[in-house]
Nucleic acid binder design. Structure first.
Lengths: 192, 192
DNA sequence: CCAAGACTAGACAGATCTGTCTGGTAATGT
DNA sequence: ACATTACCAGACAGATCTGTCTAGTCTTGG
C-alpha cells in the first residue's frame, strides 16, 4: 500500500543515519559551517541516497528542526498536580538540559541566527516552536487563575530564552537557579 | 611617529567603509553567509587593501563585534537619579532598539551561534560584552541596596537576552512591555 | 524469476569561499 | 626630490560548497 511505502521511506536506515548525523553536526557546529559532503561521509551514505531522501540541504535543515520540535514537546511535558507545579516542572526540565555538558544553546534560536529571512521555511519551524511554547505557558497560567496570563507567558518565554543563552555562553551552574527563582517570583502567589 | 601611523591606519577611509559594510551585512544576513568578495565590492575597496587592514576574515569579525561593544556601552548608559531608575532606563534603551524595524536580535548572541568554539577570539569578545553587562547590573543593584544583587543580575541578564530574541523572532510590540513589567516585578520594592 | 526500489561509489559541473600576488596610481611627509 | 604608504584593479590558486549524473549492487515483494 501507499502508506507502507511511505512508512518504509520515512524509517529507512540511511535516512535515519543522515538525520542523526545532521543533528549532531548542525547543533554542535552550526548549519552553514557543515557541508553535505561531511554529513554523508560521517553518516556513511551515498550522495545520491541523500538527495533521494532530501531534495535540498534546506529540506534537511527543516527535518532536523522538526525532529527537535517533537523531541522538545515530548520532553517538556508538564508534570505535577497544580498548574504552578506544572510550569515549574517545565522549567526544571529545560534547566536540566541547559546545564548538561555539550549544551550549545537553543537549536531554534541558533538556527534563526543563520536564517535571517522571516519567510524562510526554517523560520516557520522556529515560529511553530515558539508559538507552541507560548501557548502552553499561557494555558497553564489561565488554568492557575493567573490575573495576567498573556503577558506573564511572554515573561516566562523571555526567561527561558535567557536561560538557554546563558547555559551556552555563561556559567550554567549559576543561571539555572537564578532563572528558577525568577520564575517563582513571577508566578508566585505574591505576584497575583 | 608610530602613534601617528597607527592612528592614520585606524581611521583610514577604506577601513571605515569596510567596517560599516561589514556591520550592515554581518548583522543583517549572518557572518558565514557573507563573503569577503561581497564586502569589498559593496565597500568599494580593493582586495589587497582589505587584507592590508584585516589579516583575516576573523579579524574583521572581531573588529565588527568590538565596535558593537563600545557602541552598546555608550548607548546603554544608565540615566536617572535612583539606582532603580537607572536599571529601568537601561532596559528602556534596549527595549527601544529591540522594537525598531530592522532589528535582527543581539549581535553577540547571533555571532556566538555561528562560532561554537568557546576559545575562539570571537567568543572572547562576546564574553567581554556579557561580563560587562552583568557587572553593570550587579553594581546598580548593590547601589540600590538590593538583598540579592548577584542572582538578580543574572535574572535581568536573562530577561534582556529573552527580550532581544523575542524582538527578532516574535512580535516586538508585545515583548517590550512584558519584559519591562517583569523587570519591575523583579526589582520592585515588594521583591526586597 | 524478475522488476522495482534502496543503496553505494564517485566523477562532474559551476559557483563561491579565503587568501595571495602582481602591477600600477596617488597622496604625503621629510 | 624621494621614499613610504594607502589604495585600486583584478588574476590566480586551492579548497569547498550544492546539486546532478552515471553505473552498478543488493534486497525484496509479487
Amino acid at each position: 500500500m501507499a502508506s507502507t511505502t511511505t512508512t518504509a521511506r520515512r524509517e529507512s536506515p540511511a535516512r535515519r543515519r543522515v538525520l542523526d548525523t545532521a543533528r549532531a553536526l548542525f547543533y554542535g557546529e552550526g548549519i552553514h559551517a557543515v557541508g553535505i559532503d561531511r554529513i554523508i561521509a560521517e553518516a556513511g551514505v551515498a550522495k545520491a541516497t541523500f538527495y533521494h531522501h532530501f531534495p535540498s540541504k534546506d529540506d534537511l535543515v527543516c527535518a532536523y528542526l522538526e525532529e527537535q520540535l517533537s523531541s522538545v514537546r515530548q520532553l517538556a511535558v508538564p508534570r505535577g498536580a497544580t498548574p504552578e507545579e506544572k510550569i515549574v516542572s517545565v522549567f526544571e526540565a529545560i534547566g536540566e538540559i541547559t546545564c548538561k555538558p555539550g549544551f550549545r544553546g537553543c537549536a531554534f534560536i541558533n538556527a534563526a541566527a543563520e536564517y535571517p529571512d522571516p519567510g524562510h521555511p526554517v523560520r516557520r519551524v522556529v515560529d511553530t516552536f515558539r508559538r507552541w511554547f507560548r501557548d502552553t505557558l499561557r494555558d497553564l497560567l489561565i488554568a492557575a487563575g493567573h490575573p495576567d496570563p498573556e503577558r506573564t507567558a511572554l515573561m516566562l518565554l523571555a526567561l527561558r530564552d535567557g536561560l538557554a543563552v546563558a547555559g551556552d555562553l555563561d556559567d550554567p551552574a549559576n543561571a539555572g537557579p537564578a532563572v528558577r527563582s525568577a520564575v517563582a517570583r513571577l508566578i508566585g502567589t505574591d505576584a497575583a
